[in-house]
């Protein structure tokens, strides 16, 4: 475990906790895309299939349970909780995320590290995670005025994968035969998708003005 990866995991954990905190305290999910949350739940469910078969470390297992639990509870809140679901603007959150799932599945069947169920599911979860933020970014463009917590949530989510890229570079140079093209390319695409959001986020932060994304 190197510093970059630990920082990445903590940033990712913090992004999820910021979101859960927002939903739980103000009982609102305004500005949050349910589609992205559902995609993340699928990402974790398909990536952590080895939760009970491969024990790597206590840290690894605990973090998997936390990610699974938090993403499922966010989806539950946004779908079932009587107060929270009222603040979900479904007519704005219209990204057809089903169109993301099938191509990722087909790609995983074609490009994987080994043609086994677990490895195909693992590759699928990486491809899906790379594009899972799209519904949320589209929703931000639509709703324009982004409240602080949502902006912080998306920023932290983008930052976590950036730390992971540093982790992969570090591991490439320090570990023999550490090569995972699938992970690296997916992670790079994922981070690039946040590019313009980061640009506007830093601008709003620098000029100390409300974060506005161009229409």
């Amino acid at each position: 475990m190197n510093m970059f990866r630990f920082l990445g995991d903590m940033t990712h954990l913090f992004s999820v906790l910021v979101l859960l905190l927002k939903i739980h305290t103000i009982k609102s999910c305004a500005g949050i895309s349910l589609k992205t949350q559902e995609l993340y739940a699928i990402v974790f469910a398909t990536r952590y299939l080895d939760l009970f078969t491969d024990y790597i470390s206590l840290y690894n297992t605990v973090m998997k349970l936390v990610y699974l639990g938090s993403s499922l509870s966010i989806v539950w809140y946004m779908r079932r909780h009587k107060l929270v679901r009222r603040s979900y603007d479904k007519d704005q959150d219209t990204f057809r995320h089903h169109f993301l799932i099938l191509p990722c599945l087909i790609l995983a069947l074609l490009i994987n590290e080994k043609f086994t169920f677990m490895e195909v599911m693992w590759a699928f979860s990486l491809y899906l995670e790379a594009v899972a933020i799209l519904p949320q970014l589209v929703l931000l463009q639509r709703t324009r005025n982004i409240d602080n917590l949502t902006g912080q949530y998306v920023f932290l989510l983008g930052a976590y994968r950036s730390f992971y890229i540093l982790n992969w570079i570090y591991r490439y140079f320090t570990e023999v035969h550490y090569v995972h093209w699938i992970t690296w390319i997916s992670g790079l695409v994922q981070t690039l998708l946040y590019g313009d959001f980061f640009y506007y986020y830093f601008h709003s932060w620098k000029n100390n003005e409300k974060l506005q994304l161009p229409a």
């Binding site: 995991d9 990712h12 690894n60 998997k64 590290e113």
Partner: peptide
């Protein structure tokens, strides 16, 4: 050959 050992990253 990329090792397909268990994936140790989250």
């Amino acid at each position: 050959e990329e090792e397909t050992a268990s994936h140790d990253e989250l």
